[in-house]
Each structure stands twice: as C-alpha cells, then as structure tokens.
Amino acid sequence: MWLHAKHLRMESSSELVAEGKLIGETTYPQRAAKWQELDLGIAKIDFFDPKTHTVHEVKKSNKKEDAHRAQVKYYLYLLEKMGVENPRGVLEYPKLRITEAVEWDGETDKEIVERWLGEAQAILQGSCPKKLPKTKCKKCSYFDFCWSGEE
C-alpha cells in the first residue's frame, strides 16, 4: 500500500496480476458485453452491473480470505459515497466454483471502512514500513521489488 501510494506500481509487470486478469476474462467471457469496468479514480472495479448496482470481484485464489471481502466492501463504500443506492457485492472463486454475496450494512460497514482508511492514512504518513515475512509476500506483485538480491 505504501509503495502504491508513492506511485511505485508493479501491476503492469506482475505475472500474478496478469494471471488474475486472464482468469476473469476466460472464466466469464460474456461479461464484457453485459457489464462494464468502472474506474472510480482511486479504484477500478472489473465488473459492475449498473442495473442492480452489483460489484462482481473475481479471485484466482483457491481459498476465501477476509481481505477479499474487505476489498469489495471498500468498493461498496466508494459507490455509496458517489450516490449509488443499495450497492451490492459478489465474490467469485472460479477455482473453487463458489460465489459469495458480500453484504453492505450501511452505517456499520461505513464505520468499519472509515476506520480502515484511518489506519491506512497513519501508515502512509510514516516512512516505508518494514517488509513482511517472505511467506506472506510470495503472491504480491511487489515481491521482486522488495526481495530481489536477498536469499
């Protein structure tokens, strides 16, 4: 997050990001015609259904994670702030063949997301945080940036 906020972007050269995009495109090829990408300026939603106000987030992971739900809740927060009424979210795991609804509980979730944003702002105010353990970094697009030259 800190590196991304400082405009050090690694997504364009990341094989992991490319793999995720490929899974989204090949698993759901009809979506490009049916739904649209939505660029919110500070976030980009891959698939958005404007009729039902539903965010569809496709994950290449073979396990469900709290971070996935948090990402969708952040998107729902942004949409609500932009005036979208009753935003909804869906997480899709093609490898697991699972679809999970992500509920948005207006005020409660708004408070949670705003707390996350405050915590993120505190991190961004400081200097670059220390690296996480390598085991937590292997699937990150910044892995080579952080760990090149180290064993």
Rank of each mutant, 00 (worst) to 15 (best):
G24C: 03
K64S: 04
L38K: 09
S12P: 01
N62R: 15
L38A: 02
Y28A: 03
L78M: 14
L38E: 03
Y74W: 14
H4Q: 13
H7S: 15
S13I: 10
C140H: 07
G24E: 02
K130Y: 09
A5P: 01
G126K: 10
F145A: 14
K34Y: 07
Y93T: 08
A122I: 13
T52K: 10
R97M: 09
T108D: 09
W35Q: 04
E151S: 10
L124V: 05
V102E: 00
Y74S: 03
W104N: 03
L76D: 04
H4A: 10
I45R: 06
Y77M: 02
I123Q: 14
Y93F: 15
S14K: 12
P87C: 09
A18Q: 11
K51E: 15
H4T: 05
P129I: 06
L40P: 01
S61W: 07
A120S: 12
L91E: 02
K131I: 08
R9V: 11
F47P: 02
G89T: 06
A18I: 03
H7Q: 11
P87V: 14
V17E: 04
P133R: 03
A43F: 05
S141R: 03
T27S: 12
S14E: 08
V113I: 15
E11M: 11
K95W: 03
S61Q: 11
A43Y: 11
R97K: 14
E19Q: 15
K73E: 06
M82L: 11
F143E: 08
G20M: 01
E65M: 10
G149C: 08
L22R: 11
M1D: 12
K64Q: 14
E85G: 04
V55K: 00
I98C: 05
L96N: 04
T26C: 03
